[in-house]
Design a protein around this nucleic acid. Structure first.
Lengths: 134, 134
DNA sequence: ACTTGCCTTGACGTCCGCGTAAAGGTCTAC
DNA sequence: GTAGACCTTTACGCGGACGTCAAGGCAAGT
């Protein structure tokens, strides 16, 4: 299979595949005419990369999975190095989610406060206060 | 106040302030010698930008807040356009968090499965199966 | 022979928020 | 008058994952 077909079957572009090759993730055999030649294993390899990319993994983080597949394992995550990446990613996801939730709370609070202050300005002057003492 | 002092008081760099100016967010008066001249209002403006940046807002998203401040309002979020940005950001945060949580679940599932399969290979061959029928 | 469609390499462009020189002007202190 | 600490503009670099030409080679159909 040539690069165009591999790209189409993997749901990506030839540019992306050449980029993977330039990063050492997808070495290609060459046909007599200089064209890159791929097989079904290469397709699985690209699919592995794409899946991880969809999860938000950086390209470098997919390397252990790729090397695991190329080592002959049936799955990219059959090797300890891949599992280590999974675990590290889980930690990163947890802290990122936590951080985003904190930001969400802060922004929500800012919005609520600003809406209150806006409502206090417009209606009929800042009359209807809620404080009793004063 | 000159750019160095403003940068220090705002906890940022002169490069950043010049960048804000280039984006039209922080116009500066000039002293006779060509130096940029800032006042306390400019400091508040920069602090507003930095706060939003810390929340993960893009620079463009801070523009309504900046314009609100420059319009004389006591707070950057005292204007409807700013509130709209808050609301949009809340939506983005929600969907992003949701998406990351979904990824977290997927990655966690992959890890669990891969760990199980690894455990089934190593110990004493794939003997201790859990399936009863077969 | 010619077109069409695939392939090749090389290299610059994109987005964002700056960092980091480089080359020079200005003000203050000594 | 000179060192030092400011300031000025201009402009290239970075990281990540490619997009997008440009110029040309190769294979197949008509």
């Amino acid at each position: 299979m040539r690069i165009g077909e591999l790209a189409e079957r993997a749901g990506t572009t030839t540019r992306t595949l050449r980029y993977y090759e330039s990063r050492g993730l997808l070495p290609a055999r060459r046909a007599g005419n200089g064209y890159r030649a791929y097989d079904e294993d290469d397709l699985r390899l690209v699919q592995q990369i794409r899946t991880l990319q969809d999860f938000g993994f950086e390209l470098e983080e997919t390397r252990p999975f790729v090397e695991c597949l190329r080592a002959g394992h049936p799955a990219g995550d059959a090797c300890p190095a891949s599992l280590a990446v999974y675990r590290r990613k889980l930690g990163e996801l947890d802290s990122l989610i936590e951080q985003l939730q904190a930001v969400r709370v802060q922004v929500g609070a800012q919005l609520a406060r600003a809406e209150l202050e806006a409502a206090a300005e417009l209606p009929g002057g800042p009359e209807p206060r809620c404080e009793l003492g004063g």
